[in-house]
Simulated scan of single mutants.
Amino acid sequence: MSPGGGATTDTFADYAVAGPHAVMSEASGSTCTVFRPVTLTDDHPVILWGNGTSTQVSAYSEGLEHWASWGYVVVAANTSNAGTGEQMLDCLDGISGSAIADSLDLTRVGTTGHSQGGGGSLMAGRDERITATAPIQPYVVGLGHDSASQGDQTGPMLLLSGSSDFVASPSRNQAPVYQAANVPVFWANSQGTSHFAPIGDLGVYRGITTAWWDYQLKGDQDAADLFAGPCLGCDAEGWDVQRKGF
């Protein structure tokens, strides 16, 4: 079982294990925290992160470190109120002008977050610099979220739910996003999973999000096959999947 409940699955298991990079974290100004490979080469894709309500970056650090171990530079907004997405885009502005900017591929940027931060990732997903989104149990009935953003996305979406989430319930929060989205959407609802499953190492969402980033931000064909083409992830044990536009 995952830490917040919900069955684990082997379909995304290869992506749930740590990647090859040793990782570190550092400040990016006073408002953002960066998780990245210790040794930077060239063209690392960027992932923007928004926290859930009343939580800080440290609550999700194991999961953000996991993505960094796969070669991503993860930039997290140091706020517990990320619902507007503005702080996440400010972090993108900051990293774009930083000392490590030459090691980044700023044409491949993803945005994600949990709960209020998931709603914020959709708000940020309107920005033309965003390649793809992966909102995790996004809360979209307030806290800075504008529902009009759902139909104004710039890149494909991995929409993640938990069937036992009674805070950002799928019927009120993710189903409307799926219906309104103007981009391809892979909606994966983890069966028996609560709202707090992502705390720590992202729980059951760790593998599927890593695969999604490898598909969308690296163009990896094996990862792509989990979501498109043969859609090997469509029948993953423990998940109820709907998709459109693939």
Rank of each mutant, 00 (worst) to 15 (best):
P176F: 14
D105A: 13
L92T: 05
L122F: 07
P20S: 12
L106P: 01
T39A: 13
D225C: 11
V73K: 00
G29S: 09
S164K: 13
S171K: 10
T11S: 08
G155P: 01
T39P: 02
P176M: 14
N173F: 04
E26L: 15
S98T: 09
I95S: 02
A99C: 11
G6E: 03
T133K: 07
Q216F: 08
L202R: 02
I130N: 01
D127H: 07
E62W: 14
P138K: 06
S190F: 12
W187M: 11
H66G: 04
N173M: 06
I130F: 02
G50T: 05
W213Y: 06
L202M: 12
D146R: 09
H145G: 08
P184E: 12
I47K: 00
I208G: 01
I100F: 04
D201L: 09
N78Y: 06
P20A: 08
M157H: 04
T31W: 08
A223T: 03
D214C: 13
S58D: 11
S147C: 15
I208M: 07
A224H: 03
D201N: 07
Q87H: 09
F196M: 13
D90K: 13
K218I: 14
V17E: 09
Q137F: 09
S190L: 15
K244G: 12
V75K: 03
A16M: 08
D43I: 14
M123P: 02
K244H: 11
F12I: 09
D222S: 14
L226R: 01
G219T: 09
S96F: 07
P230K: 11
G207T: 07
D222R: 12
G233P: 00
A180P: 02
A59R: 07
T84R: 02
G192I: 10
G5M: 05
D127L: 12
G119I: 08
G142Y: 03
W212N: 04
M123D: 03
R126L: 11
M88W: 05
I199M: 08
S98Y: 03
H145I: 13
T55K: 09
Y215Q: 09
V141C: 15
I130D: 00
K218C: 10
G155Y: 03
G19M: 05
R172M: 15
V46R: 00
L143T: 10
L217V: 09
D90S: 14
G71Y: 01
N78H: 05
H21L: 13
D93R: 13
P198T: 11
Q174N: 06
G229Q: 10
L106N: 02
